[in-house]
Structure formats: structure tokens, C-alpha cells
Design a protein around this nucleic acid. Sequence first.
DNA 1: GGCTGGCTGAGCACTCTGCTCAACGTGTGG
DNA 2: CCACACGTTGAGCAGAGTGCTCAGCCAGCC
Lengths: 157, 157
Amino acid sequence: MRSYDAVDLSLLTALAEDPRATIAALAERLRLSRNTVHARLTRLEESGAFLAFDRRINPAALGHPLTAFLEVTVRQRELPAIVDRLAEIPEVVQAYGHSGAADLRVHVVCRDTDHLFRIDAAILAIDGVERTETSLSMGELIPYRIQPLIEAARRNL
Amino acid sequence: MRSYDAVDLSLLTALAEDPRATIAALAERLRLSRNTVHARLTRLEESGAFLAFDRRINPAALGHPLTAFLEVTVRQRELPAIVDRLAEIPEVVQAYGHSGAADLRVHVVCRDTDHLFRIDAAILAIDGVERTETSLSMGELIPYRIQPLIEAARRNL
DNA sequence: GGCTGGCTGAGCACTCTGCTCAACGTGTGG
DNA sequence: CCACACGTTGAGCAGAGTGCTCAGCCAGCC
């Protein structure tokens, strides 16, 4: 993956500030030509700078304001089948393979604690799942942010 | 927060498929009038349906391909000051308050395991941090997705 | 010096936007 | 049943934006 230069980083920052900014607006703001902005955006998209739009959709807006993480211990040989079953649960929004004591970290969203309880039970009911350890998120103390990384990258140019 | 109807959900899905789609294109695709799409998008934005664009920026593209989670135990009276210090570390992309044994869950991104080690050390050096338990993410087995929730919401209309 | 890649401004045909407007349909309350 | 409010629609308009091509320029490289 090629590294990004100052133009790339400025584009990312400008988009963070106005995700639906037009190419013309970005060009004006960054004092570049339209063609450059267009070409650079295309390259950023093609190089995988942008993750899926799903990440910007607020689960709370869909009626699932609670976030919880489950560390799931499984029979490892059955991991692929377990992941398939987890993927069938809509409230499971993400799952990572894990290096710690548990085998999986599962990120779920839910309506309330009763709902979480039922999702937990559904996960525990999956064949091969041995145990789960659930922790409820009590609020985003540092909201997700990438700009400090971009600033750091800019300083290291 | 008002609940969303079929039009809202369709818009979210259409945007997930093409985040930079124009209002005209969305209107054509969803068979709505431009004015309706414009009004609905405005309402979605105003109602908090969209989270920050930072979430779409790929840390790997910025040279930080590794993701790790730290469960951090702290002296609780010093939590606010600790959060301030954590926010000064660019590689800390998110931090949650926690309901489990630890007090904080910190999401960090890093270049490699050496880098992670140094970030862990920087966090442990913060006054009031008692211990951390770090686990390295070994890959996104279920990539972040919200569409199943949207489909479930659509079925429950 | 020649070549390549990237950036630029100009130009053009086409598309899009923001807004207003009148009309229509639906739901609600009296 | 009627009045009202709300939401959606298509039309219209002026202005903005886009995708693409083109020629020129500059910097870096061989």
C-alpha cells in the first residue's frame, strides 16, 4: 500500500468535515484543480482508503442504542461454522479473531439489556460455543476519531 | 428518536451501496421524487442517522494495519484525567466506558507489534492507570455491517 | 535532452441542485 | 363530512457541478 502525501491527507480531512462535499468544493477549499481532486479521490477509493458506508450508520438510530462486546470461547475446529452462524444474527455487527484468552471478540448492538440477554443466549446456543464473557459499553468516552492519526501522518511527511 | 420507515431504510441501503450517489440518482433508483429524497436525507442527517466520516477512513491505509483492544483498569476517581491523556495518543481511535472487570476498553491501531508495545507502555505510564490487558485482533471475521439490522427493521415495519 | 507522470486551466455537453410552487393524497380531529 | 396539516409530486428556473478531453507546464528520472 503506497503511502499518502499531503494532498491525500488534506482530502481525507476535508471529507471528514463534509462527507458530501462536491469535487468543486473540495478543489476550492484545498486550492487544487478539479481534475486533481477527481483523480486523487479515485485513487484513494481504489487504494482502499475508505471502509464501508455501513460504519457511518448509527445503530441507535435504528433502535439499537446499546453496544456490547462478547469474548467468545469456542471449539476451535468449529470456528468457521460458528462464524457463519454468528453472521446470521443481525445484531452482530462485527467479529474479530482474537489473540487473548478467548477466541472471538463479537461486537453486538441491541435495544436494551433484555435484548442483549437474548442475543447472548442465541450465541451460547451455537454448537461449538463454550462460553461467552459479555461486557456492556457504558458510553463512548473517546468517540471514534482518525484525525489525530492523519495529523501525525502529516507531521511525519 | 423517531423510528424509520421504508423510505428511510431504503435510503440507508442505497447510500451503503454508493456513498457518493447524487440526490437525483437516489431518486431514480428508489423511484421517488428529488424533493422527497432531499427532504428525507436532511431529516436523516438531522436525526443523527449518520456517524462521523472518520469511521470510513481505513487506518491500514494510513500505515496502521493492526488493531488491538486494551482493557484498562484505573483508579476511578482519576478517570476523566486519564481519558484526557488517552485522547492525546493519536493511535487511540476510540475508548468506551466498560461494565466488566476493567474500567475502560480502548481501541488502538498500530503499525506493528513493536508499535503496539510502545503504545501499551505509553498508556501504562499514564498516572492512575493500574493495569492493561491487551489483545491483538487477528482479523475481521465478520466485517462491520449494519445491513442485516436494516433488513430486520424493514421486516418489522 | 528526452521521457514520464502529475497538475493545471480551458472548454463543452450534460447532469445536478436548491428552491419555489401548485396540486394531490392521506390521516386526523371536530 | 369537512377542514386542516403533512408529505409527496412534477414542473420550472437559475446556477452549480461533473466527466472528459486537450494542450501546456513542471519536476524527476534515466
